[in-house]
């Protein structure tokens, strides 16, 4: 799992590359700190290269979501893989996350 964070104007785009499983979630805990620091801005999580997400992965997303809500920013998800979408649906998170 690799995360690339790029700044485009006022948006921060985080590209998730690889499986966001339990092991990966633990590894990227620190990688997302820049995102949390800019939680007052618009954060886009690009899941185009992410074929899999586990509950630990969902927790990472929820953590960012919580920070954004607290600081008054916005968070969007995009390019969701059907399998991952299925997980969102199962957890009703498809209604929680704003998906582009």
């Amino acid at each position: 799992m690799n995360i690339t964070i790029t700044e485009e104007g006022k948006q921060f785009i985080a590209t998730f590359d690889g499986r966001l499983d339990t092991v990966a979630a633990q590894q990227i805990e620190e990688t997302i700190t820049p995102l949390l620091e800019h939680a007052d801005k618009t954060i886009i999580l690009d899941c185009g290269k992410m074929p899999f997400i586990s509950s630990s992965g969902l927790r990472i997303f929820l953590k960012i979501r919580k920070e954004v809500a607290a600081k008054g920013g916005q968070m969007f998800l995009r390019n969701i893989n059907p399998d991952v979408m299925q997980v969102f649906k199962m957890t009703k998170l498809d209604g929680v996350f704003e998906i582009q």
Binding site: S55, R59, L62, K66, A69, K92
Partner: peptide
């Protein structure tokens, strides 16, 4: 409880939920 708002949800328990769901 997936129907409560996000803030009210406890983080955790999701895994079991997924297992049961799948």
């Amino acid at each position: 409880n997936l129907n409560v708002s996000l803030e009210e949800r406890k983080i955790g328990g999701l895994g079991i939920h997924l297992i049961k769901k799948i």
